[in-house]
């Protein structure tokens, strides 16, 4: 369960201060798929950063599994991210020079897993996203869709509780985008991890259990679909 309570984030100082997030409150149940929807500059990315422990809003709480991550020390936050969070970005951010294997292996190296366990998990993650034949290929030689699959493999390899996806299909053509969407939602259902998608794409948002609309740093509306 993710509880966001009264999160407020300001950029700049004094007269130049800009309120990026203002008193955000909501609760996401475990295993849900959630879309944070808003226009560019609405504060949806800032909200994602705050929820994932990358950014520290000056006010409010982000309680994940009973722990307020905004009160953790930086070392503990890094540990929290490496163990509980997976990230997927619009422009993939795969390391072009590294092989698929080494790209996916990075989060496991960060959390100190043994070489044997790493190998097992990386191969499994590559198989889940369907590019296990590209294990030794350099990431730069993959197509856009394959790169995003690689990024997804990297996000799930640590078996995180929450996966944040920032415009995951934004850089893909609609066919490839559709397969990636299918993959993401399939993983969400199978593994029971929470999926948080940041997007401005209404069609993608419509596929989620819960939609949080952000406008000018405030919650516009929250739509939940009961199943």
């Amino acid at each position: 369960m993710i509880e966001v309570k009264g999160v407020t984030k300001t950029y700049g100082k004094k007269q130049n201060a800009f309120l990026a997030l203002e008193d955000i409150n909501f609760v996401i149940p475990d295993g849900a798929s959630v879309a944070i929807v808003g226009k560019s500059g609405s504060g949806k990315s800032t909200l994602m950063h705050a929820m994932s422990g990358l950014d520290r809003p000056e006010k409010g709480q982000v309680v994940i599994d009973g722990v307020d991550i905004l009160k953790l020390k930086s070392k503990a936050v890094d540990r929290f991210r490496s163990e509980k969070i997976g990230f997927i970005f619009q422009s993939f951010f795969v390391q072009a020079n590294e092989s698929s294997f080494d790209n996916v292996s990075l989060p496991l190296e960060i959390s100190n897993l043994s070489v044997r366990e790493r190998k097992k998990r990386v191969l499994e993650a590559l198989r889940v996203v369907g590019i296990d034949d590209k294990e030794k290929q350099k990431a730069r030689n993959l197509s856009g869709g394959q790169k995003q699959r690689l990024a997804i493999a990297r996000a799930i390899v640590n078996r995180p509780k929450i996966i944040f996806a920032d415009e995951p299909t934004g850089n893909l053509d609609s066919t490839t985008g559709a397969t990636i969407e299918k993959l993401l939602f399939g993983l969400n259902k199978q593994s029971g991890s929470t999926l948080v998608i940041v997007t401005h794409d209404e069609d993608l948002a419509a596929k989620c259990d819960m939609r949080i609309y952000i406008k000018d740093g405030k919650i516009d509306k929250i739509v939940s679909e009961e199943k």
Partner: peptide
């Protein structure tokens, strides 16, 4: 690359 590594929790 550095940003990514830090986002993934690298100290």
């Amino acid at each position: 690359e550095i940003g990514l590594m830090k986002a993934l929790g690298m100290r």
